[in-house]
Design a protein around this nucleic acid. Structure first.
Lengths: 214, 214
DNA sequence: CGTATCGGATACGTTCATGTATCGAAAGGG
DNA sequence: CCCTTTCGATACATGAACGTATCCGATACG
């Protein structure tokens, strides 16, 4: 009973993979248990033996997938330990590409999470994990470039926001890549805005000076 | 026949209003025609007499709602013609509050649009309209503050991205408002990054890592 | 007023997804 | 090698949502 027997694990895995595809194509709300099973090559019996509801599968799939992304991101960043901010940025963007299918699923999951109190925390935690993964690398890279980050937490939040916000724009115009270029531009502006050169002792804060300490 | 008779218009309107509520609560995919009708105080007969599918209703509702938002935004900005960038920003954020229900619906609509080719264009057009509404005001305000915008289109895209990206973060932590503060902070950084003081003759080009200006 | 048309309600039949309960086959253990 | 347990397939009953076709009341119009 304690052993998740290889077979079981495999079908579970195939169901999770199938779920992403189906949800991306049909939308979560419009997806059915049978569609997922069919795509995975099973019948509903297998499903109900592994999950109790589509909701549960959705959560499991999203958690697995997003933690895979974080892992990949961490690995990619670890490969360029001495990167400049620009290089680090590019490495990160390469590790987390703007994927159409994944974006759709994430958008729906977000909506779902916002209306399901328990899931809010899950999402918030995931977002925090992303920031915790990026920040040390970004701060270090900026440091190497002679810049000190003033408010790391704020920078982390800003980077995630920029990623999320620009992803749609990039996906909305698949043919042209001006959106993609502007996206990188924006990232660089943010990196600059949230850091100051160590040489310059005169720190000129923006309009509202916010240098807080939690 | 050409006249949409007052009665018809009223029920159509009530259906649209009900739709937003239902979609926000249940999610679009999980919503049914009957739920919408029930909330609006009609039966399915009324629905099929006005719309041919939930998809059609969804689109109609989203278009109406979002153009209302743009109208409101335009009006709010028109009321403060001599605003500083900071004032203009606050006026805009007041006109487009971060609304939980509307965000959920928008998120799902985005996902839906990304998987429905025809809707992509609709969304893209709407995004463009938003930028066209904001930009002149923002550019003017920055001008009054002695700043010239270098690349207006890029700024518009950035502002929208920041709005979208930070909205989730604000909604994810409803109790604390640090996210909300950081959101404004980020907006201000962006306004600064995409403009340069007219005094300074040395124009520092955008992309590559550069020093901060003023 | 009377009448014709329009708009929404009611009443179908049908399809489809769900969840459970049961059965058979594949692993694993002695 | 058999026996037990586990896992997924099959069968079934139920309920829900759909779309249509029809009917009736309200509204505009002569």
């Amino acid at each position: 009973m304690a052993a998740p027997t290889a077979r079981r694990e495999k079908t579970r895995q195939r169901l999770l993979v199938a779920a992403l595809d189906v949800f991306a194509e049909e939308g979560f709300g419009r997806s059915t248990v049978e569609q997922v099973c069919e795509r995975a090559g099973y019948t509903r019996g297998a499903f109900y033996s592994n999950f109790s509801s589509l909701d549960e599968l959705f959560l499991a799939m999203w958690e697995e997938r997003s933690s895979q992304l974080i892992t990949g991101l961490r690995a990619a960043l670890a490969e360029v330990p001495d990167a400049t901010p620009d290089q680090a940025l590019r490495a990160a963007l390469r590790a987390i590409p703007v994927d159409d299918a994944w974006y759709r699923v994430t958008a729906e999951f977000t909506a779902h999470a916002l209306r399901t109190p328990g899931l809010r925390r899950v999402m918030a935690a995931r977002e925090q994990a992303i920031q915790d993964t990026i920040l040390p690398v970004v701060v270090a890279a900026l440091g190497r470039a002679g810049r000190r980050v003033t408010d790391a937490a704020a920078l982390g939040q800003a980077l995630v926001a920029v990623h999320d916000g620009t992803s749609v724009q990039v996906l909305l115009e698949p043919d042209s890549d001006t959106a993609r270029l502007r996206r990188e531009e924006l990232f660089q502006h943010v990196l600059e805005s949230y850091s100051t050169p160590v040489n310059t002792p005169i720190s000129t804060p923006v309009s509202t000076p916010i240098t807080e300490e939690p």
